[in-house]
Design a protein around this nucleic acid. Structure first.
Lengths: 342, 342
DNA sequence: CTGTTAGCGCGTTCAA
DNA sequence: TTGAACGCGCTAACAG
């Protein structure tokens, strides 16, 4: 009932010392790595720690954040936490952050720039020290705002064509080459591709390479672009077209697209792998239940996330030292991982 | 470079008024619901708001949290954010929380009580006002700690046998009845069940009803309990047993179990639905790619999450008013949703 | 070397 | 409409 939060002062009183000393002990007692320049006698220190433990002292992070100007929280703006793709990112982010004493606020944009902006506002309002961001179409202004206000952030999965920002990406063009190689080895003659209608680099880079390899503009009619919020319905159309055109190889540029198209094909009696060869992108457990299993290509999500988080933390440290951040715009591009079956 | 965070004082100066007045305006200008007892002249108020907008003022939430004793953050302790089951919960939680001006910290336990405790500590350290919790085996002490310290929390998906705590659950026994009905209608004679080895109510409740319906103790040998961290390997064993015993109906008590067992069956040439009838639990996109589709039963996750979040927020409000919390231990049990195909 | 004093950070709130 | 104290932990400066 009486929400008696123990403060540093309560401990000081009970231990018969000053607030400062308690604070000092609490801060130094955390990590005793290397040089421990305690200015406290062992006896007093033990006593203080004992009292603190007895009273189950939990420092008030608001007070600390206020004083130090650091919240030890970072924000992650992803597309959709209910998609395993972002779930994996969230897990890794959680781990890396925890290792450095940080916690993470997560938010989903659903590819809506207004939600994107709201999340930026809301996270800034919570005093996050920086962001991990999957930009969406139309998020440019928000990113510029972050740049202008010198907020540390690192972008993953997609780059923004208009400005240079710290990013950790995957070589999408190469992934498409791999997909084409796999389909080619299966003697596919009529290859098509399914992507999202939204214009984000992960999709456009894949389309561009596909178009390039398939003979330029005339390949354009072999790219299906499904609207992000109506994938299910439009997948039916893809299945129809594929049947009509005699497509024998299909690249599915995301896990959500894969699932939707596979189901639509099945509903039309077109059996994946038997009647048409597929190559998927991203993790999904539907790929492996077919015979032969559907090969797929994934981004090294854990590596990407780890690199991005490490870089973000580095930027935050540099900024915290009062140094200039504006040069820290490294762009790292990793290779995709191909999962195929002999 | 110069991290010049705009404070309330900057605005006060530029607008030629006092800090207090700025604070007053900022707080009243947010939600003008019902009686707006502004004690400020419209002219001054407008001027202040204009200056604030110009300077792009963002209140420092640490200062506010410190003063008000409220962080507007809640913590969610789930099992695994990379599992769509928890991803859905996370999404809904994010939405409900945002609607009430809250943000959510998420953490995954991986069913490890030590991680569970760490998360509790870490979230308390971040001053969360309450928790949404999926308890894991061995999390009892941490829950007791939360009860003792009067931390508001609501449990979902699983209840704890030893103490009464606010919970929003699903009728697991009924879900098993539904599964048995479906298999019965398909004339299955030898029905078995696959669950997790971990002793959490969502699993034990399902096992218990299964045992009950299948004739008590002698059904025990028809329950496979797979260790949470070795599902893949043990699923092979299930597939072997099923083949040897001529099992013709199998209940898969979670999406992860479903995927693992289905793959193991396929590796042995046992085709789901053709050679053995299955009923799955939780969402997964593998169910629908079989012919006929595998029926499955899900918890109404959005409803559960919404109810739990609403209740948590209510508890927080009551507590904040200084009233007693200890009576708020409502337990709500919802019905599962059956997804079957004519 | 051990420990204390005092003031700060910033938004909120109450008395004036 | 304002001045001033407050919440709580941090830390520079200083005393024993």
């Amino acid at each position: 009932m009486a929400k008696k939060n123990v403060t540093i002062r309560d401990i000081a009183e009970k231990a018969g010392v000053s607030k400062s000393l308690v604070s000092f002990v609490m801060n130094n007692s955390i990590g005793a790595d290397g040089k421990k320049r305690y200015r406290v006698s062992d006896v007093t220190r033990e006593r203080i720690l004992k009292v603190a433990a007895e009273m189950d002292y939990q420092p008030n992070s608001a007070a600390r954040a206020l004083r130090k100007g650091r919240s030890r929280v970072i924000g992650a703006i992803l597309s959709d936490m209910a998609n395993i793709f972002y779930g994996i990112i969230a897990r890794e982010l959680e781990n890396v952050a925890a290792k450095h004493g940080y916690t993470v606020l997560f938010g989903s944009t659903d590819e809506d720039p207004r939600k994107f902006e709201q999340l930026v506002r809301s996270f800034i309002d919570k005093d996050v020290e920086g962001f991990i961001i999957v930009p969406c179409e139309g998020s440019g202004p928000s990113l510029q705002y972050l740049m202008k206000t010198r907020y540390p952030f690192v972008v993953i999965d997609r780059h923004h064509p208009d400005f240079q920002i710290p990013s950790v990406l995957t070589d999408n063009a190469d992934m498409v080459d791999q997909a084409l190689r796999i389909l080619g080895q299966q003697d596919c003659r009529n290859i098509e591709m399914v992507t999202y209608g939204m214009r984000v680099s992960s999709m456009t880079d894949r389309e561009n390479r596909f178009r390039e390899r398939m003979g330029g503009e005339k390949a354009e009619s072999h790219i299906y672009r499904l609207p992000f919020d109506r994938v299910e319905e439009e997948a039916e159309n893809v299945a129809n077209q594929v049947a009509a055109r005699g497509t024998d190889g299909l690249i599915l540029a995301s896990n959500v697209l894969s699932v939707a198209v596979i189901k639509a094909l099945l509903r039309r009696g077109i059996h994946p792998q038997r009647d048409i060869r597929l190559v998927g992108f991203d993790y999904s457990n539907v790929y492996e239940v077919f015979d032969p299993p559907i090969p797929y290509i994934v981004q090294p999500l854990e590596d990407i996330t780890r690199q991005a988080a490490d870089y973000l933390l580095k930027i935050i440290e540099v900024k915290e030292r009062g140094e200039d951040i504006s040069g820290m715009k490294d762009v790292s591009v990793l290779k995709g991982i191909v999962q195929e079956y002999k």
